[in-house]
Design a protein around this nucleic acid. Structure first.
Lengths: 248, 248
DNA sequence: TCAAAAGTGTTGGCCATACACCCATGC
DNA sequence: GCATGGGTGTATGGCCAACACTTTTGA
C-alpha cells in the first residue's frame, strides 16, 4: 500500500480482453479463432481480443471486440465475464493481463464481414483439445476453463437456448446439450424436463416438419434464466469426489 | 488491434487486487474492512487490497495482500478469484482495474498482528447492506457479488466447512449455512444430508459436550470439494423465474 | 425432572430413469 | 407399409421435507 498511481510509482500494466466465442455447428462444438498477424506467436491461432480503450468498460470492450472480429452484432449473443489471467510471463512482451469473456451464440455465418475478421475462422474445439491445433499464449487454458464453465452452466441455467437459432425445436435444444456434454440424453425425459420448467421455452404454436418423421412444435427462448430443477448429467456419482483447484 | 504494448502506444492501466474476506462470528457474517489512509475516500471503509507487483501472479498478489492485511497465513483460507471490475470512472485518479478475490475462513482473531493491518476490523455484512456503512469506490457492488457467490457455493460445494474452526460439529456447520443464507434449516435433515455426502465430513471419533444437551460427534473437513446431491435452499420456487444480469 | 441439543425413524410426495407405446410424416 | 423422429404414459426407486420420537447431557 505504499505505491500510488498518481505519484507514478506504480508499474503500469497493459490490459486486454480476450473472447471465447462458442457455437454449435452440426454435431460439432466450435470456437472462433484468429491467426496472429505479428510476433509473438506470429501465424499461430489465438482467441480474438485486443487492448481496452480509455473510456470504455470491460463489458463494452468485449462487445466491441466481438463486433470487430465477427462482424456481427454482439447484442444477439450471450456474453459474460469468465476470469482474468495475469501470470507475469504469459506474454513475452511484458506485463499483460487479460480479462477473458465467454460468448455463446447460434450457428453463426462464417465471419468475413468485419474489417479485422478476415483471418478469423470457426475451429472444432475437439481439434484443440486433441492437441492438433496449438494456441498462442495461455489461450489453451482459457479455452479449457471456458468450456468447463459452459458445461456447468447448462446444468442450472437456460443458456443452452442461446445456441439455437430461433425458433427451434426440443430436439434442436437437446442436440446442444449432447454436443457440449458429449453424451446422449433420453429424448422423452429431456422433453419433460425442459417443457415443465416454467418460462424456459415459449411455444410459438407453429410446427416444423423434419426431413423425416412427425412435425415438431417450435419454441422461442423464454424469460427464465435459471433452470430449476437443474438438468443432470448422468456422471453424477463420478463428480461427487472431485477436488476443486486450489491456490496453494 | 493496431496498438502494441512494445511500441508504447497502449495507454497503461493500474491493476489492483481487492479482497472480500468473509468469516462467521457468532450469529453474524462479517467482512474485513480497512480504513482508507489517503485520498480519494480518505477515512472511508474499504475492502483491503493493493497494487500487483511485477513478478507475481494474481493469485500470489491476493495471497500476499491477505497476509499483509490480516497478519494471518493465507494458506489456511479458501481463496478464489471472483471477478474483475474495470469501469473507467471507478477510481477518480485514473484507470484502475481491480481483480476481486473471495476469501473464506473460520472465525479469525481480530486482525492486528500484521504491519498494515492496524486499521483493519471485522464488520457485520448486514450493516453494510443496510446502508449504515458506506464503502469506498465500487466496493459495495463487489461485496454484493461476493456474497451472492458465497451463497450459491454453499449449495453445491463443501466450502461451508472452511468457515468452521476444526474440529467442528454438524451443528457448527449448520449454523454457517443458517447465517449466510439467513434462513433456519431442519437439524435432522441437514445432518442426514452432510453425513451421507461422501468425504464431506471425516469423523474424528471424538465427542464434544455443548453448554447444554447431548454430546455431539466432531468432524474434520473431508477431501470432497463438490457436494452431491446439492444442499437446497427452500426458496426454490422463487428462484425459478429469476432473470440473470445481462450486458446489454 | 426438566430443558436443550444430538441423533434416528417414518411417511408422503416429487422427480429421475428406463422403457413401452402411440402419432404423424415422407418415401 | 415402413422407417424415422415427435411425443405421452407409467412403473420403480431415490431423495427430500416434515415431524414424531429417543438419547444424553447439565442444572
Amino acid at each position: 500500500m505504499t505505491n500510488d498511481i498518481s505519484a507514478g510509482q506504480v508499474r503500469p500494466v497493459a490490459v486486454t480482453v480476450d473472447l471465447v466465442i462458442l457455437t454449435v455447428r452440426g454435431d460439432d462444438l466450435q470456437v472462433l479463432l484468429v491467426e496472429r498477424g505479428k510476433e509473438p506467436y506470429l501465424g499461430r491461432p489465438a482467441l480474438p481480443g485486443g487492448y481496452i480503450r480509455e473510456a470504455e468498460t470491460l463489458d463494452q470492450a468485449a462487445l466491441r471486440e466481438l463486433g470487430e472480429e465477427t462482424g456481427l452484432d454482439g447484442r444477439r449473443l450471450h456474453l459474460e465475464q469468465l476470469r482474468t489471467y495475469g501470470d507475469p510471463d504469459r506474454d513475452p512482451r511484458g506485463r499483460v493481463i487479460t480479462v477473458a469473456y465467454l460468448a455463446l451464440g447460434p450457428d453463426l455465418p462464417a465471419p468475413l464481414a468485419g474489417s479485422d475478421a478476415r483471418n478469423a475462422s470457426w475451429t472444432s474445439v475437439s481439434s484443440i483439445l486433441d492437441g492438433r491445433i496449438d494456441l498462442a499464449f495461455d489461450h489453451f487454458k482459457i479455452l479449457q476453463e471456458a468450456l468447463e464453465r459452459a458445461r456447468s452452466q447448462l446444468e442450472y441455467t437456460t443458456i443452452a437456448a442461446v445456441f439455437c437459432p430461433e425458433p427451434f425445436t426440443v430436439s434442436d435444444l437437446r442436440k446442444i446439450y449432447e454436443v457440449i456434454w458429449g453424451i446422449p440424453l433420453d429424448p422423452s425425459n429431456f422433453r419433460r424436463k425442459v417443457t415443465r420448467a416454467e418460462h424456459f421455452l415459449e411455444p410459438t404454436g407453429e410446427r416444423r416438419t423434419p426431413e423425416t418423421g412427425r412435425p415438431a412444435a417450435v419454441y422461442r427462448r423464454g424469460t427464465a434464466r435459471l433452470l430449476y430443477p437443474p438438468m443432470l448429467r448422468s456422471g453424477d456419482i463420478a463428480r461427487t469426489h472431485q477436488t476443486a483447484p486450489s491456490l496453494r
